[in-house]
Design a binder for these strands. Structure first.
Length: 431
RNA sequence: GUGGGUGUAGCUCAGUGGUAGAGCACUGGAUUGUGGCUCCAGUUGUCGGGGGUUCAAUUCCCCUCACUCACCCCA
């Protein structure tokens, strides 16, 4: 018998170990705080949804639906691991008739998403997104507010070199009109386009404008801009959005060629990218836009909506290294059996007062325990040995100040707690 | 999905057709009960996995897996 096979996480799916989880928690806390300040409440939906939900909302012809979904059969149901969060939120909104409870709903979510792509830096098969959705508000005020929230959150996280791109896709009047104008422009140029783009002209001509191919870019130079074909209402919405963003001092770039890979968007479209940190080619940190017809398309009432999603892995790359904030804690070092029992009790007493405590119960040398105390980042260390048990004392060592004092065991808990948490002036504070 | 690069100790990486090394980390000691610095000693590897060539493969060849870069796509 050989050794058992060593398993590893599936391709493109990663463990996040304790050594790095604090960065995730910091990011998540910043997101939750920003969302909460803006009136969003969390929604949690299943990670699996009926496959058709994504086909209908994201769009049958999109890459996400055509080749990236994890889909499987379970009895008679076709289920899919969610590739994004908006469809689920909209499904939940419709299922629970939330429009009957309140005119406007602001939701945020956070969690893993799945897309079967070839992994690269900033692109994994299981990745994590956080996002916000607003149902029932036609904008454009909430559009501007949403973009502004994202930008200030990124700035607060220390991410530099941000670029905000915005555009408008117009509504049901604008799109067909622009589409035919664009087709008239592209068809004669088909011969100059890359094979990839040529194939797209009829399927999704908007995407041709977004090509990275140099030949395509040259050929597309001077293409008509959708912004010149907006209906009066779409134009009013678009102009107001820009005015409000300027008022909020959000620097943005108008990118008429901006395209999202999901079919459901209309009117406001935005993307925030950064060239900071260790981001490679995948430098879009967040993207979103309006999807005013999705709720209705999913069998609900006519309810306008807007949302965005941000990729947590990429944001962490863009954030780069940062100082870990270590919370004050106490390290208890007992030597010997009796002392170990007492160390356990001391630790419990300290925890009851809200102090973070480690007890090193290994049967090894004082030196190695102190080494661990030091590298744990603990601020103080309580040493209990045979002689301390006999004299009813504890050696209280301050690892930062390199000082040590002997304190009575019965006052040790209070003294340590005061030192770490700061003495809390309660009734009659006399200092 | 297409094309390229990489894969040696827990981590960062040297190295060789004759089955391996450094630094960091870890453990012990110098200090029989005192951490961060210093010094000394020690532990750790199926040289990513499988197959082939060879007397002999970690080294050469093929396949495969993982990561990575570009394309693609997107957050």
């Amino acid at each position: 018998m050989g050794k058992p096979t060593r398993f590893q996480a599936p391709k493109g799916m990663h463990d996040i170990l304790p050594a790095e989880i604090w960065r995730w928690q910091r990011l998540e806390a910043a997101f939750i705080e920003a969302a909460t300040l803006h009136g969003y409440s969390e929604i949690r939906t299943p990670i699996l949804e009926p496959t058709d939900l994504f086909v209908r909302s994201i769009g049958e012809s999109t890459d996400v639906v055509q080749k990236e979904m994890y889909t499987f059969q379970r009895h008679d149901d076709s289920l899919t691991l969610r590739p994004e969060g908006t469809a689920s939120a909209a499904r939940a909104y419709v299922q629970h008739a939330v429009q009957a409870l309140e005119p406007i709903s602001r939701w945020y979510y956070l969690g893993p998403m799945f897309r079967a792509e070839r992994p690269a830096r900033g692109r994994q098969r299981q990745f994590h997104q956080a996002g916000c959705e607003i149902f029932g508000d036609p904008g454009p005020t909430c559009d501007a507010e949403m973009i502004s929230m994202l930008v200030s959150m990124f700035v607060d996280l220390g991410i530099g070199e941000l670029e905000v791109s915005i555009s408008s896709l117009g509504g049901p009047e604008t799109r067909p009109k622009y589409r035919s104008v664009l087709l008239d422009f592209l068809r004669p140029k088909a011969a100059d386009l890359s094979e990839h783009s040529r194939a797209r002209i009829e399927v999704n001509p908007f995407r041709v404008l977004d090509s990275k191919d140099e030949g395509d870019r040259a050929a597309v130079e001077g293409a008509p801009s959708i912004l010149d074909y907006l209906s009066d209402e779409d134009r009013a919405h678009w102009d107001a959005l820009k005015t409000q963003l300027e008022a909020l001092e959000v620097p943005f770039r108008v990118s008429p060629g901006l395209v999202r890979g999901l079919d459901y968007y209309n009117r406001t479209l935005f993307e925030i990218s950064s060239s900071a940190g260790e981001l490679g080619a995948q430098n879009a940190l967040a993207g979103g836009g309006r999807y005013d017809t999705m709720v209705e398309d999913l069998g609900g009432p006519k309810i306008p909506a807007i949302g965005f999603a941000m990729g947590l892995e990429r944001i962490l790359l863009a954030m780069g290294e940062s100082e870990r904030v270590v919370e004050p804690s106490c390290f208890v070092v007992p030597m010997g059996e009796k002392a170990t029992i007492d160390g356990l009790v001391l630790a419990r007493e300290l925890r009851q007062l809200g102090v973070r405590v480690d007890v090193d119960g290994r049967q090894n040398s004082l030196k190695s325990k102190l080494r661990r105390a030091n590298s744990s980042g603990a601020r103080v260390c309580a040493i209990i040995g045979e002689s301390e048990i006999e004299t009813g004392t504890v050696q209280l060592k301050d690892l930062l100040q390199h000082s040590q004092e002997q304190v009575p065991r019965d006052r040790a808990t209070r003294i340590i707690a005061d030192r770490l948490l700061g003495s809390t002036p309660r009734a009659g504070g006399n200092d």
